[in-house]
């Protein structure tokens, strides 16, 4: 019964939430805090704060940690599967259909029409990251890091991990 509850607590938010993991977090909070009462809102906020300091997707980190906390190792596994599987299965099905009919003029047209929309989506994410950085690190640090990153990535065409390692060192020293 507990395992079923863990499954549903993560299956429902991840099946109705759009916009990627960070956008789904409030829906997960509604389940684990308000509906099932597994943790307080403050505990949830603390877990989220730690989750946000670590790399990798946020939705699966929260699922793994909360599932483990509530139902042990199997609780963690069930929560992660409930988070990942539904949308991944839909994804494989949808792309499978597109690939099957890829010579169809309608599917070719689809692929072309979504290009400007994808460009706009990436622009939106760029703006949201800019806002996030301005409010968390301030304009000075944002401009310095962005300028060095642009130099390394665009001018010198180096591997992204070099720019990321630079920013990690910068953050540990100047933003810590």
């Amino acid at each position: 019964m507990l395992y079923l509850e863990i499954f549903l607590a993560f299956f429902i938010p991840n099946s109705i939430g759009y916009g990627g993991g960070p956008a789904i977090i409030p829906l997960i909070e509604a389940e684990v805090v308000a509906r099932y009462g597994w943790m307080s809102a403050a505990q949830f906020a603390e877990t989220l704060a730690l989750g946000n300091t670590l790399p990798s997707p946020i939705a699966t980190k929260m699922a793994g940690q909360i599932g483990y906390d509530v139902g042990g190792v199997w609780g963690g596994v069930i929560a992660v599967v409930a988070t990942v599987a539904p949308s991944l299965v839909l994804m494989l099905g949808a792309i499978g259909l597109m690939t099957k009919f890829k010579t169809s003029p309608r599917v070719k047209r689809m692929s072309r029409w979504v290009l400007p929309v994808v460009a706009v989506l990436m622009a939106l994410l760029t703006v949201s990251f800019m806002r996030e950085s301005l409010s968390s690190s301030g304009p000075l640090h944002t401009v310095i890091i962005a300028a060095v990153a642009a130099l390394l990535l665009v001018r010198l065409n180096l591997h992204p991990s070099i720019a990321i390692v630079f920013s990690l060192a910068y953050g540990a020293i100047f933003l810590g």
């Binding site: 946000n52 300091t53 670590l54 790399p55 760029t126 990251f129 800019m130 996030e132 950085s133 968390s136 690190s137 640090h141 944002t142 890091i145 962005a146 990153a149 642009a150 990535l153 665009v154 992204p160 720019a163 990321i164 630079f166 920013s167 990690l168 910068y170 953050g171 540990a172 020293i173 100047f174 933003l175 810590g176």
Partner: peptide, 12 residues
């Protein structure tokens, strides 16, 4: 601090 500093790189 490390997590924050990566954001401008991601932005670029």
């Amino acid at each position: 601090g490390m997590g924050q500093a990566v954001v401008p790189v991601v932005m670029i």
